[in-house]
Design a protein around this nucleic acid. Structure first.
Lengths: 341, 341
DNA sequence: CTTATCATAGCAAACGGTTGCTAAGGTAAT
DNA sequence: ATTACCTTAGCAACCGTTTGCTATGATAAG
């Protein structure tokens, strides 16, 4: 058998002291009736690094019941549409947690779990951040394991906090922007089928679109009620036939498709058609011409979720669950303009 | 304090048997001088699920020295350019490992580690898959921890296996494709600065581009030796001034930028300019017109890496380290065509 | 009736750390 | 010389499982 890994006992033996002394030195657990001579201390440190000692966290976790392990559930969402907000969210979460005092180990669960099986890692975790949604079974399991959790862009019951973008406010801003530019025929390109089916953002954005147009006495353009399929067909119906001058797209993928189809059909953006979509700067950044978009604030969502989780981990008793709404913001760039006469 | 989690002892007490009996029943460790009456067995199973018993894997790992935990290192790469191959790779890895007998817990490490700190999770892992690269320090640590590892698209020493796309072969195919179409003025758009600086794919693709053109007596188009910055400037220099009729792009992001810049400059693709890029179907799928690309085989890379790792985990002594090259393939779609006169 | 065998189940050690408590030796104060 | 206290460090229990070995009673075989 190859060389095996050094453990506390090995270090202790090599240094000629007891395991407890090594443990206390390495963890700097002085005081409280304990002290070491600096000579012994140096020796232990020296030998430990020489032996490449790394504490076995399983053993450690066994006694102190904490793993410093935080799990991001639902990371598979980040691998679906390219450039979706979960990539930014994960980035942001790890940023915060990496720099948190104490040092957490952030692991992202990328598995697409078979229905019925547990989504929770088999490991004991100190906390979880859930992306978009997980089964109610999983929520039950997390609650039962006593780990605090935060849901990003999805629902939770009273035991968990949530961070959600304000899709209603975002759509209001989008409509207002287009109306102020002078548009009266505004279409909505919804999400493709199966895209997080049943997610609140689908309903919120759609319903608000209808409501805001109504409020202003404008007619909704037909097509908003169906899932988005062919961009070319959509443009033919909405722009060519129904004479829409602006489109609000559910997400950046719809927007990308629409831009490409518009190009193919010879529809100039933004001269003949204004386009605006819900996404974040990461996705919008690669579109050309520069996409006018409703920024979902994904970076902020990740940051706030991570901070709320840290708070809950720090004092599990006090920290309350909160439901935070992230305000969506208009980023006005090159795909929206006044309608041409 | 809230309800705490049930452990083996709780189950044993509730069932009126000993811990060892519960353990053996739950793990189906019958035989070998042990058996239970089906009555006791049923009771234990019943109570365990009632109490929502989940074995504490730290305790378990402590005794049997295996964690069934596999770590993907360098997941942060997947969050850089949208649509990069590592997203597909991770997807593919988790797919294989999820369905592996025994059930592994795949965790993806998304942290961007400060230089000098360990990239290895503090946890004892059964194996690791490294994306693109990690510090030599990390490799040392993995080796020293006795865990098998596989590097995808990066170097390893004799202790680790590698899975690498054959960039030289890929570039040969790309050049050959364009030449066969009739192109003689073929440009190369390299990677933007800092994009995995020093990675072998940079050198391999570039050098092979030069070599293949030389071989055919064709002149390289100026611009191939510099990092890619502005697509518009690049097109002006390469297409407008140097009269290139085809471009081979290092990656899908360069290609996307070029397509957009071409559109802005009124250069028709593929009529006036053929474009081909290195990427995978995931990224190419969203481009329009359909991008002709050199498929890096990211799905296969992930699959093979995961399978090789499983093999090494299963029998650590026998399984040898291997270096597998993945053949790159041409996918001929709508952005390449014969040059116009 | 004794002995072997089988079915059933528990004891206790081990895994690698952490930590409350105790112990040994030295020094200072009384 | 006794007491008190500080410094330095070790003992041993404990965390929750797994597992080799042992124990008990019953049944079958001789």
């Amino acid at each position: 058998m190859a060389k095996s890994v050094a453990n506390l006992g090995d270090v202790a033996a090599a240094a000629g002291v007891s395991k407890s002394t090594v443990s206390r030195v390495l963890n700097n657990k002085l005081g409280n009736g304990f002290a070491v001579s600096s000579e012994v201390r140096e020796r232990i440190l020296e030998i430990a690094s020489q032996l490449r000692y790394r504490p076995n966290l399983m053993a450690r976790g066994l006694t102190n019941q904490r793993t410093r392990m935080v799990s991001v559930l639902g990371g598979a969402h980040a691998l679906s549409d390219m450039g979706n907000i979960y990539q930014t969210v994960i980035n942001s979460i790890t940023n915060v947690l990496d720099n948190a005092p104490g040092g957490f180990d952030v692991t992202v669960d990328m598995s697409q779990h078979a229905p019925g099986t547990s989504e929770l890692p088999a490991w004991k975790i100190d906390g979880a951040i859930i992306l978009a949604k997980c089964t109610s079974q999983t929520v039950e399991e997390i609650k039962h394991s006593n780990a605090p959790y935060v849901v990003i862009n999805g629902p939770a019951d009273s035991s968990g906090s949530t961070v959600t973008p304000d899709d209603i406010g975002g759509m209001e801003i989008a409509v207002k922007h287009l109306v102020q530019l002078g548009h009266t025929r505004i279409a909505y390109a919804s999400a493709p089928l199966s895209h997080l089916a049943g997610h609140s953002s689908l309903k919120d954005r759609h319903d608000t679109y209808v409501k805001e147009l109504n409020l202003r006495g404008l007619a909704a353009i037909k097509g908003h009620e169906e899932p988005f399929t062919s961009a070319e067909d959509f443009l033919k119906s909405v722009v060519v036939i129904q004479k829409a001058t602006a489109i609000i797209a559910y997400g950046h993928m719809s927007a990308l498709n629409i831009m490409q189809a518009a190009h193919a059909l010879g529809i100039a953006i933004p001269r003949e058609l204004s386009l605006i979509a819900f996404c974040d700067e990461h996705a919008a950044g690669v579109m050309s011409p520069g996409l006018t978009f409703i920024d979902l604030g994904s970076r902020e969502m990740g940051r706030i979720a991570a901070e709320m989780l840290l708070e809950k981990i720090k004092n599990p008793e006090q920290a309350q669950s909160r439901n935070v709404k992230i305000q969506e913001k208009l980023v006005f760039r090159d795909t929206t303009a006044r309608p041409c006469r």
